[in-house]
Structure formats: C-alpha cells, structure tokens
C-alpha cells in the first residue's frame, strides 16, 4: 500500500515535470516572438509610408477645391494655366500627359511585340545571348541620361526636320518610346513564354506556317499578358518626369500640334513646385496635378488587376 502510493507520487512528480517542460517558454519561443515583432514592424513601416503618402497628397491635392474654392470642372476643363493670376486650367497638362503616353505606347508596342516574338519563337538562343542583355541595359540607363540624349540628339534632329524649336510632343514621344520599350518587351516575353507548348505544336502539326501560328495562336492566347505589359509601359510613361521635362518645352498651353512646346503633369510639377510658396493657390494647384498623377497610377494598377482577374476566370472555365 505504502509502496504503490510512493510510486504513484513519483510518477505524478515525473509527469508534472514533463508538463512544465513542454509548456514553458524557451529560447525558441522567445526568438519567435522577437522575429514576429521585427517583421511585423517592418511591414508596418511600409504600410505607414503608403498610407501617409496617399493621405498627404490627397489632402494637399484637394485643397485647391476645398480651400481655394476652384471648381473641379474648371480645373479639369480649363485651358488657361496661370496660377499667379488665379487661372488654373489643367487641361493642357492633362492632354500633354495622355498624348505622350498613348503615342509612346502605340509606337513601342509593335517594336516590343516583334522583339518578344524574336526572342521566344524565332531565335531563343540569340534572344538570350544578345537581346536579353540589350533589354537589361536599356532598363538600366537612368532617365536623366535619356533626357540628355533627347536634348542633344532628338530635339536638334526635329528642329532640322520640321523647323521650330524642336521641343514638343514628338520629341517626348521618341524619348519615352525607348524608355518603355524594355518594360513592355520583358513582360511580353513572359506572357509569350507562358503560352502552353502544345498550342503551338498543335498548330504547326496542322500545317500552319510559323507566322500563322504566332499570329493566330500564340499572340491570341497571350493577349491579356501583352495588354498588361502595355499598361505597365503606359504607367511608366505617364509618371516619367525628368526625361520628358527636358525635351517637351514646358509651355503650359494647349498643344496645337506635335512639334510645338507643350507640357505634362510631371514636367509642370518638376519646374513649378520649387518656385511656389506652401499653402498658396499656385502651390495647391500643383499638388492637384500630383493628385491626378497619383490617381492615374492607382487606375493603371487597378486595370492590371482587372485584366489579371479576367484572364484567370477565362482560364478557369
């Protein structure tokens, strides 16, 4: 009786010891708390940056309308930009930005798609050895260098060709075309590579030529991807500041043609923001331009998501 009691107690004590041992915090649990803390903090910093960026630019950007009581419609449709005199029609810059963006995308897309087809379908080997580095180098060139070349080569060239100052939408388009080309090409290559091999093989087996296969099968099934690529390129063009500002001439007037000085949202911002005083109408008006840039960037983002979702639905079915 005594004996068993003693044994039971001993057993109890042992299992109690294990109970404690398996429940207490150890170095590993503390490490995990620490790690969790650090990584949550870091992601928190990023979220805070994004949130405050959206908040500050929005609140600054709407001051034109809430404090200076400029009508939103006048801002968007007015063509007279002279903030010193209280005229803040932003249409010239809006038109300028959209014009260079669309023009650059329209010129760059055939080049990008052609290059991507070459890299994936015609000569993957040369594609990897020659074009891949070429594209990477083009991405690597800083935008001020593009701006400088635009200023030193494209602008004089346009001046010789059509007269005038040489500054204007055409020159900006030219510079942006080279800048967005690598973006669109890289992403198009990815989407062409993602087309299942058997699509291509089936088409070739039916006796289609390479071009028929490419145009009817590969490009068609890669269309959402190519569209996404073009939108990314457009987003880059829309937001590019210095290279455009250096070659477009920076005249805040409605562009009448493609070869006279014009301006974009970004170019107006870079030239203007340093010369205005915080809190005044001219300053607030510039922040409103920045807000348009921000909203457009969100719009491009949403568009890409929308296309991706559509693509998933289609593939799912």
């Amino acid at each position: 009786m005594e004996q068993t009691n003693f044994q039971l107690k001993k057993q109890d004590a042992q299992s109690h010891e294990w109970d404690v041992r398996l429940h207490r915090a150890t170095r590993a649990t503390r490490e995990d708390w620490l790690g969790r803390g650090i990584s949550y903090l870091c992601i928190g910093v990023i979220i805070l940056v994004v949130a405050s960026m959206l908040w500050f630019i929005t609140s600054k950007g709407i001051a034109t309308f809430t404090q200076n009581h400029v009508s939103l419609w006048k801002f968007l449709s007015g063509t007279n930009w002279a903030p010193d005199q209280g005229n803040i029609g932003a249409l010239p810059m809006i038109v300028g930005s959209f014009a260079v963006t669309f023009a650059a995308a329209i010129v760059a897309t055939p080049f990008a798609v052609g290059t991507a087809i070459f890299m994936t379908e015609i000569s993957p080997n040369k594609g990897r050895k020659v074009l891949q580095p070429v594209i990477e180098l083009l991405v690597g060139i800083p935008s001020v260098v593009y701006g400088f070349i635009g200023l030193a080569v494209v602008v004089p060239f346009m001046r010789h060709l059509v007269g005038g100052s040489g500054f204007g939408i055409i020159s900006a388009t030219f510079v942006l075309f080279v800048m967005v080309l690598p973006t669109i090409t890289t992403m198009t290559v990815d989407s062409l590579r993602a087309v299942p091999r058997h699509y291509k093989e089936a088409s070739l087996a039916l006796g289609a030529t390479r071009w028929q296969t490419v145009s009817r099968v590969i490009l068609r099934s890669a269309t959402p991807g190519i569209l996404t690529a073009v939108i990314f390129g457009m987003a880059r063009a829309f937001g590019e500041a210095l290279a455009v500002q250096m070659v477009i001439g920076n005249a805040a007037i409605m562009p009448k043609n493609l070869i006279s000085p014009a301006s974009t949202l970004t170019s107006q911002l870079t030239t203007g923001i340093g010369d205005t005083i915080d809190g005044t109408l001219p300053n607030n008006a510039l922040w409103s331009l920045a807000l348009i840039l921000l909203l457009m960037s969100l719009f491009f983002n949403a568009l890409v998501r929308f296309i991706a979702k559509r693509g998933q639905l289609k593939n799912g079915r």
């Binding site: 994004v50 949130a51 937001g239 491009f300 983002n301």
Partner: peptide, 24 residues
C-alpha cells in the same frame, strides 16, 4: 491588402515619391 499597398508604392511615379518626401 498589404500586397496591394506594396504594389501601389512600387508603381507610383518617382516624382510623386519625391514630392511626398519634399512635403514631409
């Protein structure tokens, strides 16, 4: 949501980022 926030930050034009820095 976090991924979207990062995506948004990466797609913002650098001039906007610069202006935010200026403001702040």
């Amino acid at each position: 949501l976090i991924r979207s926030a990062i995506e948004v930050l990466s797609s913002l034009p650098s001039v906007v980022v610069g202006l935010f820095g200026f403001l702040l």
